[in-house]
């Protein structure tokens, strides 16, 4: 008895989905858009996190040493800096190391390499790269270096970058907080739009609901097919959204790599595709079923 009813409910839901082709298509499309927004938000979340991490790790202080500074001299400075509580890491780049990095970075431009070769000697200075635990610690660290006034130190680049660094630190905080609020708002709007579309779809069916009641159908026998419809809307929309993200991620990936070399969008998408589809599926089906249940309530009261 229960199985027969379940079979009938599923069949009725499927048939009404098929026979109201345009309505179903329109609803699936709106739902896809809602899920698309959710998907974008997921990616944006991952992107900002990566970008912020990268940027934060990029912010550092470089201390350059005069050309004739001995390695012992430099290492003694390094040891002194390392013990500071605000410092998370200090890395040493020798003159030769700096030259190698320089050559690597400008491998493509023959002009620069030629000019370097013509120079004959290594014009670059050895340096210490200091990373703080928190971007706001940098000014304290640079002040410390300045007060020590090491004779071997040629220049500290913090003061050149100070404005940029401070501004970035402020932006990081804002983006983290504001992003979450914006994401919530967008998600809310998307959900509202999808909900209203399903409500409209059921509104067009309100007379049928009444007829079914008069013919003697129990409430759940009428509600069932609409819930099946909601599941179908959600599943198809989730699948379509996931498919749309394939070419999109593939196209956006190389452009993003230019800006943010450590974030490969397409790889990230491929690596998390099952998880992504699952989230879309849960959101889609949840949205479809809930909207259907809420919308049909009032028309069942006959």
């Amino acid at each position: 008895m229960f199985l027969t009813t379940l079979k009938r409910v599923i069949k009725a839901g499927y048939l009404s989905f098929k026979r109201n082709g345009w309505l179903s298509t329109a609803t699936v499309m709106v739902m896809t858009m809602a899920l698309f927004v959710l998907g974008i938000l997921i990616f944006l979340g991952a992107l900002t996190t990566t970008a912020l991490d990268v940027l934060e790790s990029k912010v550092d202080i470089s201390v350059y040493f005069v050309s004739d500074a001995s390695e012992e001299n430099i290492f003694s400075v390094k040891r002194e800096i390392e013990v500071l509580p605000d410092v998370s890491a200090v890395s040493y780049i020798s003159k030769d190391g700096a030259l190698e990095i320089f050559r690597e970075r400008h491998r493509g431009s023959a002009l620069i390499i030629e000019a370097l070769d013509e120079l004959g000697e290594n014009p670059l200075e050895a340096s210490l790269n200091i990373q703080a635990r928190d971007p706001s610690n940098y000014s304290a660290i640079s002040t410390f270096l300045l007060e020590k006034n090491y004779p071997a130190v040629d220049k500290i680049n913090y003061f050149e970058n100070q404005v940029v660094i401070d501004r970035l630190a402020a932006i990081f905080g804002t983006v983290r907080g504001g992003g979450a609020v914006l994401a919530l708002m967008l998600a809310f709007i998307a959900v509202l739009v999808a909900f209203n579309t399903i409500r409209l779809a059921i509104y067009t069916m309100r007379e049928e609901v009444g007829i079914m009641r008069f013919v003697g159908a129990a409430a759940w026998f009428i509600r069932g097919p609409f819930i099946v419809n909601g599941i179908l809307y959600g599943t198809i929309a989730a699948a379509v959204t996931t498919l749309i993200f394939f070419p999109l991620a593939w196209l956006a990936s190389p452009r993003l790599l230019l800006v943010l070399p450590s974030f490969d969008l397409f790889h990230y998408f491929l690596a998390n595709i099952l998880q992504f589809f699952a989230i879309m599926l849960v959101a889609g089906i949840g949205l479809g079923v809930l909207s259907s249940m809420i919308s049909i309530r009032r028309y069942l009261r006959v």
Partner: peptide, 24 residues
């Protein structure tokens, strides 16, 4: 009349029986 527009005549009549839980 109040027939269900997206169902055939047969399905309209069958619906009343399905709703009443009658066997196929």
């Amino acid at each position: 009349y109040k027939l269900l527009p997206d169902r055939t005549a047969y399905e309209n009549v069958a619906f009343a029986m399905e709703a009443a839980g009658r066997r196929d």
